[in-house]
């Protein structure tokens, strides 16, 4: 326990020192890794802890991005105000979907398809709203990039790096305590067997709603980060089902329901993806699609041969 804590602190310290060594490219890859680790951790609360398979988490990223981004774009409301608005909007979206699904007893594959349907429905809706700029997109004003302006979330890449690192660390700590609290126990009970959970006095509906609310609220931070890091939003991209798949890749590859899974998965997948890009460039094979084919093959291999993910495999092997 203390050894793990010491290792984690050492990891955090070295991550904090990273911007001093890494160049712009290294930093952008690190930001990408941490972004997927964070979003994966948020998804993991709903699926890994409470067993509710969402294949539409891009919905929360998109809604949060558009709420905070739109407030900034149209009314010059700084993201420090836009963030709480985005969190509230996303949580409401999650609660509505959860309420409908759980009241009508939608579960398993059907629940997963319902989450896809809501994400797609919203995507097409946002494509036809004038306020979002529709398919033409919404472009946030890029201000100067030298000084840290946290209220407007404008600054050099290092600021974004530290922001996402802080989000990741906080999410990790929050999940650590959640898992050991009543909520964590109740969620896992629901994941394992709903009838048995209910017989032990657990209000299954209410605790599933709590899981959806927690997960969507956490995901909304990722959405706001996304909006102000990339500064452009297109419904077609941000709500796309492949964004939802990207979010769940890291925890599934790393280990669903584990604390380290999303982080490890994000490192492996992003590293792999960048590695493939680099080596293909070195070989001169820059044909569109080649990279994703390799990526898919590796994914296939991991899913087939490490069905519980990499982290449970490693922790068994090295007794972590």
């Amino acid at each position: 326990m203390t050894r793990t804590a010491a290792l984690l602190l050492a990891l955090l310290a070295s991550l904090a020192a990273l911007p001093a060594f890494a160049g712009p490219y290294g930093l952008s890859v690190a930001i990408l890794i941490l972004y997927f680790a964070y979003a994966g951790q948020a998804w993991n609360v709903m699926m890994g802890f409470a067993g509710q398979l969402s294949l539409g988490h891009a919905l929360y990223v998109g809604v949060a991005g558009y709420v905070a981004g739109g407030l900034f774009f149209h009314y010059e409301v700084p993201p420090i105000v836009g963030l709480p608005a985005a969190v509230i909007a996303c949580t409401l979206f999650g609660l509505v979907i959860g309420f409908l699904a759980f009241r009508f007893r939608i579960s398993g594959v059907y629940f997963a398809l319902l989450t896809i349907a809501f994400a797609e429905f919203t995507r097409i809706g946002f494509d036809h709203l004038a306020w979002t700029g529709g398919p033409g997109g919404m472009f946030l004003k890029v201000a100067q990039r030298n000084t840290w302006d946290l209220a407007n979330f404008r600054g050099p890449p290092a600021m974004y790096y530290y922001a996402i690192l802080a989000m990741c660390s906080l999410a990790f700590v929050a999940c650590f305590f959640l898992l050991r609290s009543k909520a964590g126990f109740y969620w896992q009970a629901i994941r394992e067997n709903e009838d048995a959970a209910q017989a032990l006095g657990i209000n299954v509906f209410r605790w599933k709603m709590a899981a959806v609310a927690a997960s969507s609220a956490m995901t909304s931070f990722a959405g706001v980060f996304f909006a102000f890091y990339y500064n452009n939003l297109f419904p077609e991209q941000i709500f796309n089902i492949s964004r939802s798949i990207e979010i769940i890749l890291a925890p599934v590859i790393g280990g669903v329901g584990t604390l380290f899974g999303p982080i490890l998965g994000a490192v492996v997948l992003t590293g792999l993806s960048e590695g493939i890009t680099e080596s293909l460039a070195a070989l001169g094979w820059e044909i569109p699609g080649v990279k994703q084919v390799f990526y898919g093959l590796v994914l296939l291999g991991v899913v087939m041969f490490l069905p519980n993910g990499i982290w449970p495999f490693l922790s068994r092997k090295f007794k972590l």
């Binding site: 394992e192 067997n193 959970a197 032990l200 006095g201 657990i202």
Partner: peptide, 19 residues
């Protein structure tokens, strides 16, 4: 029987105790 198969015996019983 419906044990929470992914949890330990202690964790199973703790779910009940949290009531």
């Amino acid at each position: 029987v419906k044990p929470f198969a992914g949890l330990t015996v202690l964790e199973n019983v703790m779910v009940g105790a949290f009531l």
